[in-house]
Each structure stands twice: as structure tokens, then as C-alpha cells.
Write a protein that binds this DNA or RNA. Structure first.
Lengths: 88, 88
DNA sequence: CGTGTAAGGAATTCTGACACG
DNA sequence: CGTGTAAGGAATTCTGACACG
């Protein structure tokens, strides 16, 4: 697993990197758009990949999409990624 | 700057990634071997590169080197890196 | 020299909820 | 629906120091 996917970043840092509030980030998790890991103490841990994903989500929300629609889009993308992998 | 060099990791996570204690990591900083950034609140922030460096330091200490010697070695390496860059 | 630990405080994060619209 | 906020608690980190050797 590359640096991009290691869940080592705390929510406060993610806020700085993305410009989002912690409230927004936790809400996107509630809506099943991001999936942070948890430290023993229960602290959410994000990867750089998650940071990129969050900025993408923020973009789509600004474009007027709803969290539910964004989830659908991402599920599709994940599915075709699997298909591609199997095909190759 | 790549993911490797972004200072976004908190000391507790660095402990897990390296197997070192926070006491050791702070001591290596005191001895000028690592240079974490600081958050607004004063929390030390490390990069994946720092994590690698710390493991290297731990290796050398196990080999019997002293922090002072390790620093010398690392300074030399940094210097030749600059030389190489200028040469190329 | 390199590391452990107890001490007290400050910064960070967590959850559940009320609010607006 | 998506986000702000105050609330109280728990986890994390910080510094300076004493200890051992």
C-alpha cells in the first residue's frame, strides 16, 4: 500500500488540506461517502486518497448534487474499477 | 511536494509506524536528527519521509552509533545531495 | 547517553442534539 | 438537506524534570 492510501491523517489536518469543516467531513462519512479508519482511542484517521476524495465530494456538492447522488456515482466508479481489474 | 514530504502525521501515529516511543522521537528531535513541523496548537507533525528517517536512525543506534555521529552522517548525505543537484 | 516515567496543562477529537430551512 | 454550534467527556500531545547508568 502506497503513501496515498495509508490512513494516518487526523481530521484537523484534513480540514486544513481540504478547506472543509470537521462537521462537513463527519457528515460525508455519515452519508457513506468516506470511510476513515479509527485509532485505538477512536480518532478518525484519513489517507491522502481520502483527502482527494473529499475535495471531489465538495466540488460535486457545489455543483448542486446531493450526497445520495454522489454516492451512486462513486459506487459505479468503484464497480467499473473492479470490472476493469478482472478484465485485465 | 509529494505525499512523502507532507507533514501531516501526528506523533502517536509515528510511534505505531516506527515502533518507537514518543520519548525517543522527541529526543531525536532534540539531537537535531528530525525536524517535524508544528500545528497551530503546537503539535508536532511528521511526514512519511520523517518516518523512514526515524527508522533509519533507530537502526543506526542499534548498531552502536551515537546521535552525534548519526547527525554527522546525515549532514554529509544532505551536502552531497546538494552537490549532486548542482552537478546535474 | 538514551530512555522511562509521573505531573499538570493545553489542544484535539468524539458523540448526540438542537437549530435553520 | 447540509451545516453551524454549544456541551461534556475522553484521548492526545506538550514541556520540564527526576531517575538510571
Amino acid at each position: 500500500m502506497s503513501y496515498r492510501d495509508k490512513k494516518v491523517i487526523t481530521i484537523g489536518t484534513v480540514c486544513e488540506l481540504t478547506g472543509l469543516t470537521d462537521r462537513q467531513i463527519r457528515y460525508y462519512e455519515e452519508r457513506k461517502l468516506v470511510f476513515p479508519a479509527r485509532s485505538k482511542g477512536g480518532t478518525r484517521m484519513y489517507s491522502f486518497g481520502d483527502v482527494e476524495l473529499l475535495m471531489e465530494i465538495a466540488d460535486k456538492l457545489e455543483d448542486g448534487l446531493h450526497t445520495h447522488e454522489i454516492r451512486k456515482l462513486h459506487e459505479k466508479r468503484a464497480k467499473s474499477a473492479v470490472t476493469d481489474r478482472v478484465a485485465n
